[in-house]
Design a protein around this nucleic acid. Structure first.
Length: 662
RNA sequence: GCGCCCAUAGCUCAGCUGGAUAGAGCAACGGACUUCUAAUCCGUAGGUCGAAGGUUCGAAUCCUUCUGGGCGUGCCA
């Protein structure tokens, strides 16, 4: 059901005689902000009055006279400068809601304009542990996929793994030098992680040793500059003072950043030097960074031994990643990593050159694009290829193999320039016939507003965050006090299932609740809370309905079956709380359409939170089991059942589960 | 230097293609429990929508300038 679209259609019919752009004026129908103005308002009389040179209220009256909405709305009213206020009829709302209850798609029509989407998201690097930065791409991409699919579109998901980069050279080097064969035999995945971390620590150590001196000098020099600038600011004439103080502030910021960098480098140095084992290894492998690059280069050059190791070790890395996806309940249709395109890269460069699109510059092969200062480099001086090259090859492959109508790249906003260039280059190559979209997103920040990191300075690990969220959810939702509230009390098994559902849901929900393009502050405390806009609150609203259904000794299936039989007569919307809830529920399809248009799942989150709140209000004002008569009781059971179905479906589209009790 | 993004209540964030008095949550304060799950609900307080211009019947929203911040900016991804 698309109420707004229906009203627009009716309005467009009425407007035909007024304007050639009837549809455009008709699109000015929107929900009202205040219920006293009805449910929807048409704002077209003001601009139309302007155009026709008539008073808007007069125009509005003429429109209303022609508007045929009797079956849907109560008589329209005109307010203010010429707003046309529409209030839907209660019997109409109740009838449509009743029909929706017996529809297993919750009233959402499969799209008539079916498109094939290819979604590129998650894309972690193998061998490296996934970190907090992967949450957004993974969760947003997965949710968009679910929503597009539910709307009736075809979706193809492809996890573009980083499985061919330096990090694999690190694993190979570590395997050769640091492997504990017994441990590897017993549990290969943690052992590989361990050796990766050793190599990583040693490389960081060497790099830090090399740069910490310079960083310190820079930081100290900046201190001196600040003193100087401060003195200058003191002495400056009033006219110059503002500028001088600004310069001081800028220097102070840079100074803080420099000090933090020194601190970070020292942390990396200490990490090795305070650990006798690592310290010894560091002494034994002074050239580790170069050696790792050599291993990587050998792999790329087709070295037999390294390729064998790559093939042998990759599955273990995949196990690690897949374990995370399993916890998150996320699957991909394809996992075609960078390695898959390796053989196609020379062809891409060749093609660009042959078409005169790429040229050599400063030893690298570059594509110069109009409107960009820097070129897109597709081959380095040393002959190696870059991610721009891989992305072009990937695009070409996807185009030929999947023939998508639209490709969504769910990737960090910082890669905006890269995608602009990529899309421009693709257009020149003639391979941009699909709609190419960079679905960008902001950064996950800590409480201080800096990118979320662990104490040791690396980005917070994803597995750890999931564990923390589940543990916290257990404390909040499954404390013995809470468990005792239910009859029968929650079993240990049930508690664990709930904690898992709520904890994982909390992380996803918090991420999806924010607009994709804005940064957000990560707060475990808040996201697992039962109060406010959280997964737990919405999940709880769902569980409450289930509790009521149990109390009524009926089931969703039974109520839906009854709705099917009685068609449009299973509920009434007499009370404001009931009416308001039902009206919201009927806007499910339109919300999903909007999510699709803007690639913005936060709209669905807002919608579900609104439903959950309205459900709570309805409980207060309209008792279900204690309703005054059997008919009202049946109607209310039907209403809350519809709400529960839409909550469950909506959460499912966010990749979040529900539990029958909590 | 150039480019992209951001600035809304004490805090965290919404605000759709311009629409009526700018919303929600948290925190604060005041109410409502012999519970259909009070894990809730109701109410109060809190805003020059960074600043200044402009377009418009009408601007948080569009345009310009300024201020403050984030990010990117030729061989990482």
């Amino acid at each position: 059901m698309q109420i707004q679209a229906l009203l627009r259609k009716r309005l467009a019919d009425a407007l035909e005689t007024f304007s050639a752009e009837a549809a455009e004026f008709a699109s000015m129908v929107r929900p009202t902000q205040d219920p006293k103005f009805g449910d929807f308002q048409a704002n077209c009389a003001m601009p139309l009055g302007k155009q026709l040179g008539k008073p808007p209220r007069e125009v509005a009256a003429e429109i209303v006279a022609k508007l045929d909405v009797e079956d849907l709305c109560e008589p329209p009213s005109i307010a203010g400068p010429g707003f046309i206020n529409l209030r839907l009829r209660e019997d109409w709302i109740a009838a449509i809601a009743s029909q929706t209850l017996s529809d297993d798609r919750c009233g959402v029509q499969p799209t008539a304009d079916r498109k094939r989407f290819l979604l590129d998201y998650s894309s972690p690097n193998v061998a490296k542990p996934m970190h907090v930065g992967h949450i957004r791409s993974t969760v947003i991409g997965d949710s968009l996929t679910r929503i597009l699919r539910f709307l009736g579109h075809e979706t193809i998901t492809d996890n573009h793994l980083g499985d061919w980069g330096t990090q694999f050279g690190m694993v190979i080097y570590g395997y050769r030098n640091f492997l504990n064969a017994d441990a590897f035999q017993r549990e290969p995945v943690p052992e590989l992680l361990r050796i990766y971390q050793i190599v990583n620590a040693l490389i960081d150590y060497r790099k830090a040793l090399g740069s910490v001196g310079e960083a310190k000098r820079r930081a100290e020099a900046m201190e001196a500059d600040i003193k100087e600038a401060r003195a200058a600011a003191e002495a400056a004439a009033p006219a110059e003072a503002k500028k001088a103080h600004k310069a001081v502030a800028a220097l102070e910021r840079r100074s803080r950043a420099a000090a933090e960098e020194v601190e970070a480098l020292q942390t990396k140095i200490r990490a090795v030097e305070d650990d006798p084992e690592l310290r010894t290894l560091a002494e034994q492998h002074p050239q580790i960074a170069v050696a790792v690059l050599e291993e990587t280069a050998k792999l790329h050059a087709g070295d037999e031994e390294n390729l064998r190791l790559w093939k042998q070790l990759l599955p273990y890395c995949m196990d690690e990643i897949n374990r995370v996806y399993e916890r998150l309940d996320i699957r991909f249709d394809h996992t075609l990593g960078e390695s898959f395109y390796h053989a196609m890269l020379p062809g891409v460069v060749e093609q660009l050159r042959a078409r005169g699109l790429a040229a050599e510059s400063e030893g690298a092969v570059c594509v110069f694009l109009e409107g960009f200062d820097a070129p897109m480099i597709v081959q380095k001086q040393d002959g190696a290829y870059l991610y721009a090259t891989t992305d072009l090859a990937t695009l070409e492959y996807r185009r030929e193999t999947f023939r998508p109508d639209e490709i969504l790249y769910v990737v960090d906003f910082r890669q905006g320039d890269h995608f602009k260039k990529l899309f421009a280059a693709a257009a020149q190559l003639g391979i941009a016939d699909a709609k190419l979209v960079h679905v960008s997103f902001g950064t996950v920040l800590d409480q201080a507003g800096r990118p979320l990191k662990t104490r040791s300075g690396t980005l917070a690990g994803l597995v750890g965050l999931l564990d923390d969220a589940v543990a916290r959810a257990y404390e909040v939702v499954c404390s013995s006090e809470q468990a005792e509230r239910l009859n029968p009390p929650l079993s240990e098994q049930e508690k664990r299932e709930i904690a898992d559902c709520v904890g994982i849901g909390a992380i996803k929900y918090a991420d999806l609740a924010h607009h994709r393009t804005s940064d957000y502050k990560f707060s475990l405390e808040k996201m697992v809370s039962l109060d406010g806009n959280t997964a737990a609150y919405v999940q709880y609203a769902y569980a409450r309905v289930q509790g009521i259904l149990r109390g009524a000794e009926t089931s969703e299936a039974e109520i839906c079956a009854r709705a099917e039989k009685k068609k449009d007569r299973v509920m009434v919307a007499g009370q404001p709380a009931e009416r308001s809830l039902l009206l919201s529920l009927l806007q499910f399809e339109e919300v999903l359409q909007q999510v699709r248009e803007e690639y913005a799942p936060n709209l669905l989150v807002d919608f579900l939170y609104d439903i959950a709140k309205k459900l709570a209000v309805m409980y207060e004002q309209c008792p279900v089991l204690k309703a005054e008569d059997a008919e009202t009781r049946a109607s209310r059971l039907a209403i809350v059942t519809l709400a529960a179905r839409i909550l469950r479906q909506g959460l499912q589209l966010l990749g979040i589960g529900v539990v029958p009790r909590m």
